[in-house]
């Protein structure tokens, strides 16, 4: 099941996200303590860490939902920390964010959910263009038949898919997935994992996939980054991270697979 390595790239790798020495605390709670990470164009980085360790805080900082205390974050060549609002918004359109809770607008139908980011961001967009985009992303996530339902009528896995579709509609270059498989059964989880890989191929995205689900990390990540105690203590291919004597990595592994 392990993810096939990507075809060899030609030329030097181009970084799309660079995080340098990032710190963030809430009062006395030090959540990020010197985080360093680089994500290259076209790759999926799976971030593994315990819940409550600060993974969501990290990707929230990437899109400017939270401000870091210290450190540098560069996304697609822009320093996120000190962008003026209009430039930050322009950057946000190029980054898709899939929320842990899916965050579908529950007063809107699926169609309206998908149309909303388009209508609000692209002036004078025609009805045909909107319909075409909606159809396209629904096909990509395989839920064409749900178009006129309300979010409350969908299952957890379907909501996740629609949440992903809603970010795809703006054709992002980077995808950030916050716990895409949490709360889902193993079969649905593996479908979401496939979808994440499909998005990477079809939409040429680079992604950070935050998870505490080892299967998800193995199946979607070209590279694994272990997040522990406020920083990344280990990155590399799945086999590299888990095929050694590192206690923390192994306890994570045992918990997930041997239990």
């Amino acid at each position: 099941m392990e993810k096939q390595s990507l075809p060899a790239k030609n030329g030097p790798e181009e970084p799309v996200i660079i995080i340098r020495d990032l710190y963030k605390s809430f009062g006395d709670l030090h959540v990020l303590k010197g985080v360093d990470l680089t994500v290259f164009k076209g790759e999926n980085v799976a971030v593994l860490g315990k819940s409550g360790s600060g993974k969501s805080v990290l990707i929230r900082i990437l899109v400017g939902l939270l401000k870091p205390d210290k450190g540098e974050v560069t996304v697609l060549g822009h320093q996120v920390n000190n962008l003026p609002e209009n430039e930050l918004n322009a950057l946000r359109l190029r980054v898709g964010f899939s929320f842990q809770s899916s965050a579908l607008y529950d007063s809107m139908s699926i169609r309206q959910n998908l149309e909303f980011p388009l209508k609000m961001n692209i002036k004078n967009i025609s009805k045909q263009e909107i319909d075409k985009s909606v159809k396209e992303v629904l096909e990509a996530v395989g839920l064409e038949d749900k178009i006129d339902q309300m979010p409350a009528d969908l299952s957890g896995g379907q909501r996740k898919r629609i949440g992903i579709a809603r970010t795809l509609i703006l054709k992002p270059e980077i995808m950030l997935y916050d716990e895409p498989t949490s709360g889902l059964d193993p079969i649905t989880s593996s479908e979401i994992n496939k979808l994440i890989n499909l998005v990477q191929e079809q939409y040429n995205t680079s992604s950070i996939i935050i998870t505490h689900d080892l299967t998800c990390a193995r199946d979607t990540g070209d590279r694994i980054a272990m997040f522990e105690d406020g920083r990344f203590n280990k990155t590399g291919k799945f086999e590299e991270v888990f095929n050694d004597t590192d206690e923390q990595a192994n306890s994570f592994y045992n918990y997930n697979f041997i239990q």
């Binding site: 918004n89 946000r92 964010f97 579908l104 529950d106 970010t167």
Partner: peptide, 17 residues
Amino acid sequence: GSMKVTEQIDAMEVSAI
């Protein structure tokens, strides 16, 4: 309140709304 706790408000913000 429910839009806030289910991250719908954040979802708007990250789609530049």
